[in-house]
């Protein structure tokens, strides 16, 4: 077993209404960032976990997303995995 860092990004699915994104878009426009076309607001979750290898870590993270980290009715997720040096801070 070795230690892995899973970087999980959860974001509203394309067709799903994203009020938060709309509010941030308006805020950015109000601040003069007129070039901004669209904003979607999701969340980023770092998970440190033990796994045999990158594949297993990724599979477990996907299970976590399906059951808790994402609401798959309205959100999609992406998982990236990287090895963690023992004792290193995330």
């Amino acid at each position: 077993m070795s230690l892995w860092l899973g970087r999980v990004t959860v974001i509203p699915k394309p067709s799903v209404n994203d009020p938060q994104g709309l509010a941030v878009l308006d805020g950015l426009h109000a601040l003069g960032f007129s070039e901004v076309e669209q904003v979607r607001v999701g969340r980023h979750i770092d998970v440190r976990l033990d796994a045999e290898g990158a594949e297993e870590a990724e599979a477990r993270l996907c299970q976590m997303c399906e059951t808790l980290l994402a609401n798959t009715l309205i959100e999609s997720y992406e998982v990236q995995v990287q090895p963690v040096q023992e004792g290193a801070a995330v």
């Binding site: 009020p19 509010a23 607001v41």
Partner: peptide
């Protein structure tokens, strides 16, 4: 204010 989106108060300050 402004829906409290992002963080409460964060957009209102503008």
């Amino acid at each position: 204010a402004h829906g409290d989106y992002l963080r409460p108060g964060s957009i209102a300050q503008f």
